[in-house]
Design a protein around this nucleic acid. Structure first.
Lengths: 209, 209, 209, 209
DNA sequence: GATGAATGAGCATTCATTCAT
DNA sequence: AATGAATGAATGCTCATTCAT
């Protein structure tokens, strides 16, 4: 297991300036994200990553156990971020329809803001080592479940139709979200907000009893 | 361009259809589909494919120009099938809502019936050579346009809401369809028909004015 | 051993129109010569040759035993032609200096007229099977000896300097001839005749006592 | 571009120079030269080279970009050496005939001393990548031009005949030199010096007005 | 922390040749 | 006389990873 630079900050305090504190590690993650999104995980060589980050292979293997580990770290970052945001919206005050609408809009906006992460996620997930793969799937499932709970809440409250399993509604909606990477372009006619609102409208409309 | 087998079985008799009688080309396509769906395009070696098909590498390169060409042929087959079916449903008689519902149900059923093809499509498409990639995207776009025309037709007829661009509705729906490969299991609780109906219901409901 | 189409014309009679009688074999030799000269023997595939000649591989292996055999036939043709011409000039009437000058001029002209053959000769000779290689070398040696005899004849007659071994003079001169392929261009400023005369002048001058 | 070994032996001490102490890069160049001369570039596999040098393929690709690059390095070494020597002789004191004679003798001696390099040069040059090929040809042309200047100098001084283009005299002479590899054997009756003197005599004699 | 030489297994692809038809 | 499917061995090259320094 490669030593983490954060390893000795287990008390949770954060460096004052994240991007300057661990520049090599951050740069490696950033370049790997960009390259994996562009060419795919398998088609990106460690050599390309380290060259893009301006470091040597030795440096990369100092911070990460393997190329696979690099991918895993990218996933961990995405998962952490999405879960945090979902919790914030789901736990807010107000009618469940409003909270679901807000959460749905936000996940679109966040996805669009981190489109590279999104592209990588579904294209390269199956390249993870089995153990890692399982843990990522599990984390992902927890995220879906949190979202599904909102749907169930609405169904129980009678504001959403309940003849379609909530589970499937979630898969239906996230399929749409995950495919943003295949068609959305930041310099296209629509902002992330606009797409987010439309998607949320479609979701809420589809749930009307 | 690799030569195509020109079935010299013009009399119509068919092989007993033990897998060993199957023409080499078909066997290669079938095994490649299975393996690409399982491990991804990049992680599947030509050696694995030919071993699975019980032929030699030379035979594969007799029928296909490259590993890339093999992937392209798989795509071409899928695209052809889907376009045919969509046309059949779109050109049928009846109200546009019914036709859209039928087409939406059918694309889900077909996807579920060829789940390997679906898995390959979005995971490996970007590994195609640029030229091939473009032609596949173009074909895909034509398919989406045909589907979008149905939505537009309904919007003009006033039976669908028109405050969301038809284009986006299509991307929204097909995102869901294309992600079936990540969660649907043939031996799960739901048949393809059931999922298809639910998906079509959600689509139609989301379009209610 | 591949059958030769000429095999059943052992009596020596020739077809009225050589190029139409054995079109396939001639076309194969012609295209092979062109391609070997351009890319080298090893870098030219049998596939390229048969494609250029507009026939199939099977046809090529009907007329020639192997790719090596094809090269050998090219050599045999060149060697035959050159030996015939040298004999004609060497056996003519007149002073030895004139005969050597004429022979030297002619070999340059012939080389320039068949530049592809010349390019192939020294680039690809060592790719021949050992046995074939030996027989080509032997034939080549006979050619050199016939040429050397002219030099010796002149040295004995006292018209050529004899302090340099005749053998070496021949190697000296043919080195120059064989390298024509690396610099001479048919559409350059000089005709083959002009180069031939200059080369012969240089040779004769260098032999002045 | 493959990285070059940056001899960290700045103190000047040398390895015992048993062939195992020799740097990997040098050993690869030496063995490649030997094998290319023997079998030709195309017929020599990278596997054969690395086996002969006692290293792995990976090591070779660490020092050289490709098999092509290996050939290019051999060429660069030869070209550098020959240009240096020619300059030394051409820029010396004395009559132009003496300087040309000395330079001509030297190029023969050097060629004979590095006969493998010479064999490779004309047999395999056309296998280089187009760009590399051009640069080698250009360097070669500069060498020829330097030599030609000596001939022109003699023609202007009236000590050489000027009815034959100097350019052609150079091609004539270097053809002879480059073909040494096809007939000269170190263990034959003549030393390189002897051949060099004879060749230079023939050249100078051929230039007598 | 970081280097860079070296590994060794694996990759897609090419190719001359064969052979049943 | 000619086809074209199939072979199987070889080829140049890439790559994630290791390790002495």
């Amino acid at each position: 297991m490669a030593r983490r630079v954060t390893g000795d900050r287990a008390n949770g305090e954060r460096p004052a300036n994240g991007s300057l504190e661990e520049p090599v590690r951050q740069r490696l993650l950033a370049e790997a994200t960009r390259l994996f999104a562009g060419r795919g995980f398998e088609s990106t060589s460690v050599q390309e990553i380290v060259a893009a980050a301006g470091v040597t292979k030795g440096a990369m293997y100092h911070y990460f156990d393997s190329k696979d580990d690099l991918l895993h770290e990218i996933y961990a970052r995405v998962l952490r971020l999405q879960m945090e945001r979902l919790n914030r919206f789901a736990d807010a005050e107000g009618p469940v329809a409003d909270r679901l609408h807000a959460a749905a809009t936000d996940v679109v906006v966040t996805t669009v803001d981190n489109l590279d992460d999104s592209k990588i996620f579904f294209r390269s997930m199956h390249q993870l080592a089995p153990e890692t793969y399982k843990s990522v799937r599990a984390e992902r499932r927890r995220y879906h479940e949190r979202f599904r709970d909102l749907v169930v809440e609405g169904q129980r409250a009678g504001v959403f139709r309940d003849d379609i399993p909530a589970e499937m509604v979630v898969d239906f909606f996230f399929g749409s979200v995950h495919h943003l990477g295949t068609w959305y372009h930041p310099d296209g006619p629509l902002t992330g907000q606009e797409v987010g609102r439309h998607f949320a409208d479609l979701l809420l409309n589809s749930l009307r009893p």
